[in-house]
Design a protein around this nucleic acid. Structure first.
Lengths: 345, 345
DNA sequence: TTGATTTATCGAAACGTTTTAATATATTTT
DNA sequence: AAAATATATTAAAACGTTTCGATAAATCAA
């Protein structure tokens, strides 16, 4: 059917091996033979058959992308964007990203993604919070993997991290400079290390400006120890504002929560941002279309995907690399929800 | 390394061929040999190597999923959900879905997705509006493909269609029964056949109740011939309501537009749904979290993905099947944006 | 010049399956 | 009891590549 390496060899008057050598840029092959072969390949529109190549090399050319089911199926566009970033990067190296989801109550015995069961990937990217049993499984398998925006305390794995601390710090600092004095925090599960870091950024920014007095942090923080959602934001905003009407800004652990916070503030009837300013984190697409448009910390999602892919490629080619963490920096983007008069430009 | 069919054969005291036969449920093999082999397989945790199998069978076991770049990277969660539906279905048959995006100005000569260049898929699903040149290319390649929520006028391809007409009809009928008299339509490109159908449903529902008088349709329709977006909705609502203040309901070509329409209505200062009711189409996840919650026509996205996968599988196993269209039915879901008093339950 | 190295090419084995055709045995039909 | 058919097993070829080792020619060092 399709042209094979054999056809090329015959037409070019050389052996199969030689063709393979130019295909893989290996060994010695005379410039003019090489040229000849390349021209024949081009003329006959030759594409190596991946399955044959894979069989011979014992590599799959695939990378797995695993994400918690809720993260892909809900409003959350974050991890789809990261995925897209990986896909873009993968195009250049002719490999494929196989996406699959795992359930919350994942059990490695029964729910193992099929590309792991069948060893159809050379490496795996784990996006966001994933079951720890899965991480352990991969660690035991000696299959290269990277965590994206997640980590396990005490263990050192390959990681792509967001600069959560600085993002949060700058956001809160911006609120302070806009003359906000009572800045609350609304968030979800502290179990997630990224949220912990964002909280730390929040706290340290307040400390820098000496806003923190006794009980400040406790009074103005609202966290439910579950997956973040709009409803956490809405509940949090309503409870905090009723209890402490002096609150004039809310920094949220992410955009999803922030959009809920905005709903809550609107229900109470306060003006955004004049009475209460809001800043989120992530810059997911709906943030820009929210009413009012959401100020937030932009996380470069495509870039994260690209970096994950690159790190993974390095790991695959060099399995004994020491585990490393790469940190992706973020930018504050001010929109309507925190656009105070004094700060407008 | 991993156990191969050879190991199984040796341990079970049979030939490789016999093992292969039970693996593929083919030919004759004595019940007790079969049992023996299966037990050995189980004990040794044998998984056939996909690349070897693919090489031998000349099938890839992959299905491509192509989507316009803007549809995956923007707010639109619709096609990600359809993708997920395909992925779920694929799990059962041990195949993989390879997702890639194409640009608006796609050119088959240069931008062909790599899984098409390398013939790494047995079939392709095209999600939503995709470049016609791509459809033509696939048609020439004799590669099985299905269109999801799209069609080409005059051509009969394999299609998974949404019951757009009935969804729209029921939505508009519901508005009429809630005593709305001046029901507008806001939408995007008529170039998209689904939107055409939704408009037809709108029109015929109005006709059924004799609401359409001279100029009604022209007066109360706002369409920009570009990709749908929130801003089309916002602009449309503002223009229509300023020009025709009697409008008491707006049916939108999809949820994205509807959320824009809601923003527009809010800017003008009318109450939803008391003064102006809004119904969208699709039921994308943000619809439920919108303020007010958006009434809409629920399209079962996972089911669409599943049906696409199933149709594609049939096509792959039976290449001469006549092209067919499968229609997925939809449900009206009433939330706050059209929840008129008289209609509340 | 000789021997060592570098450059160039190729035959053949290997990767792990499926599948075809051959063979052998058991069962059924005549 | 012979012929025909169904059941059971297998050896070997095939799928399209990579890679190892052999071989030969060209270049270099002494």
């Amino acid at each position: 059917m399709a042209t094979t390496i054999k056809d090329i060899a015959k037409k070019a008057g050389v052996s199969i091996s030689t063709v393979s050598l130019v295909l893989n840029r290996k060994g010695y092959v005379a410039p003019k033979t090489k040229e000849k072969i390349l021209s024949v390949m081009n003329r006959m529109d030759y594409k190596p058959l991946h399955s044959a190549r894979k069989l011979a090399t014992q590599k799959t050319g695939n990378i797995g992308y695993i994400i918690w089911e809720g993260h892909f199926s809900e409003v959350e566009m974050f991890y789809s964007q990261v995925f897209l970033g990986m896909e873009y990067a993968a195009r250049k190296s002719d490999s494929y990203i196989l996406l699959t989801t795992v359930k919350e109550d994942f059990d490695p015995k029964n729910d193992l993604p099929r590309f792991l069961q069948y060893k159809d990937v050379d490496g795996v990217a784990l996006a966001g919070r994933v079951p720890h049993t899965l991480i352990e499984y991969l660690d035991n398998q000696e299959l290269p993997f990277v965590l994206i925006d997640y980590e396990l305390p005490g263990k050192s794995f390959n990681c792509i991290k967001i600069d959560n601390y600085n993002g949060a710090f700058r956001a809160v600092e911006n609120l302070v400079l806009a003359d906000k004095k009572y800045i609350a925090f609304v968030g979800g599960t502290f179990f997630h290390p990224s949220i912990k870091e964002r909280y730390r950024g929040y706290r340290e920014a307040l400390e820098k400006y000496n806003l923190v007095n006794d009980g400040y942090l406790k009074k103005y923080s609202y966290c439910e120890n579950i997956e973040t959602s709009r409803s956490i934001g809405e509940n949090g905003a309503i409870k905090l504002l009723n209890r402490h009407p002096e609150i004039d800004a809310i920094f949220c652990c992410n955009d999803t929560t922030a959009m809920g916070v905005i709903t809550g503030i609107q229900k109470i009837g306060k003006k955004i941002p004049q009475e209460v300013a809001v800043i989120g984190f992530d810059d997911i697409p709906p943030a820009e279309y929210n009413m009012p448009k959401l100020s937030t910390v932009r996380v470069p999602k495509l870039e994260i995907g690209k970096q994950a892919f690159m790190l993974l490629s390095e790991l695959i080619n060099n399995p004994n690399m020491a585990p490393q963490t790469r940190i992706i920096s973020v930018d504050l983007v001010i929109r309507e929800s925190s656009h105070s008069e004094g700060n407008k430009q």
